[in-house]
């Protein structure tokens, strides 16, 4: 009987001990990242941009070294918060909350997992002022690429009316809309720029109606930010107007009319955070995607025959932004100003 008890004890101890010994080894081998996104990973917009970046990082590092899980469609913040906490308690090395609506959840969760790195965006707030050091922040200076696309829009518009559709006047959508408008007016102050925030991220029919209203006003170039824009793209296509995309490459929506898209490339940001995690130096800093650091890319639609002069003008402006000759300031009230360096 005693032998049996001993045997059982040994088996039991072994059962507990073996995973305990093997688990850390596995964790060291493989970096594990968890991501929560508000919409689907193939939304041709914000959520897809982080998914594409994770795939790129995984290809760089190999699946055996880099594992990621993604919870999509977390438009309910409470659900997202539950998922984020779950991932942190499951020992993921890096937990990313890909949506500016998730900030307050991280503020709550991050202090409970001091050894886990968290990241969220788009924002600049790392909560350092609240004594939290394991939260990274990232933002997209989407006004930069928007400005470049705005310049192109101004050059391509024959009717001299350009329209931009946004969801809600905040975050990178506002930066995009403001930057685009600034770019159009910088190129040609005579152009009428129509702006409409439809107050919805999901209402395709409303986005379509907003586009119709702009087209009826004579707009022949449109752009827009967020995941409800496919509704507008089709209206532009019907009317033969041009379209500029953002967040993801939107060429597939309508190859006939998409001139270019500003694409968010989070790969470098992810790699920088991952490097910190691997070095054990989680420091919660803030990153920004810019044209200069290749975080923002202007991807031209190869099937669209873009006038060479327009492309050259775009590339010049892009270079000016990269060189700092054109920069952007956003004041506390969110007003964007274009700052041009004095010519020497």
């Amino acid at each position: 009987m005693k032998k049996l008890a001993l045997l059982l004890t040994i088996v039991l101890v072994a059962a507990i001990a073996v995973p305990a010994f093997t688990a850390p080894v596995q964790a060291q081998d493989k970096l594990r990242v968890a991501v929560v996104t508000p919409s689907t990973k193939s939304d041709l917009a914000f959520s897809q941009s982080i998914y594409d970046a994770l795939i790129a990082v995984q290809e760089e590092r190999g699946e055996e070294n880099f594992e990621f899980v993604l919870s999509e469609n977390m438009f309910v913040v409470e659900d997202a918060a539950t998922a984020l906490r779950d991932y942190a308690s499951q020992g993921y090395d890096l937990v990313i909350a890909h949506g500016s609506q998730y900030g307050s959840s991280l503020l709550d969760i991050a202090p409970d997992f001091p050894d886990t790195a968290f990241a969220w965006g788009t924002t600049v707030d790392t909560y350092q002022d609240q004594g939290i050091t394991n939260v990274y922040a990232y933002e997209a200076r989407s006004e930069e690429g928007a400005f470049v696309q705005g310049v192109m829009a101004a050059l391509l518009s024959e009717s001299k009316v350009v329209g931009i559709i946004g969801p809600i006047e905040t975050g990178d959508a506002k930066l995009y809309v403001d930057g685009f408008k600034a770019g159009v007016l910088w190129q040609d102050p005579e152009i009428e720029v129509l702006v409409n925030y439809i107050q919805s991220f999901s209402d395709l029919a409303l986005a379509a109606a907003a586009a119709e209203a702009m087209l009826a006003e004579g707009a022949d170039v449109l752009s827009g930010s967020a995941q409800m824009v496919p509704g507008a793209v089709n209206k532009a296509k019907e009317a033969g107007a041009l379209w500029f995309g953002t967040q993801s490459n939107q060429t597939t929506l309508s190859p006939e009319i998409v001139v270019s898209s500003q694409v968010y490339n989070w790969v470098d940001v992810l790699n920088a955070i991952i490097a910190d995690v691997e070095a054990g130096e989680i420091n919660g800093v803030s990153f920004a995607l810019t044209l200069e650091n290749d975080g923002l890319l202007i991807e031209f639609n190869e099937d669209f025959e873009l006038d060479e002069d327009v492309q050259e003008a775009a590339e010049e402006v892009m270079q000016a932004i990269i060189d700092g000759d054109i920069s952007f300031e956003v004041d506390e009230e969110g007003v964007l100003t274009v700052v041009e360096a004095e010519a020497e």
Binding site: S39, T40, D43, N73, S200, S202, D203, L204, A205, L206, A207, A208, Q227, M228, P230, G231, N234, L253
Partner: peptide, 18 residues
């Protein structure tokens, strides 16, 4: 009438409360 006549695309939750 939304997906094949008004906007000609589908997205999750595209009815948006209609």
């Amino acid at each position: 009438s939304l997906s094949i006549s008004l906007v000609n695309v589908f997205q999750q939750n595209m009815t948006a409360g209609q």
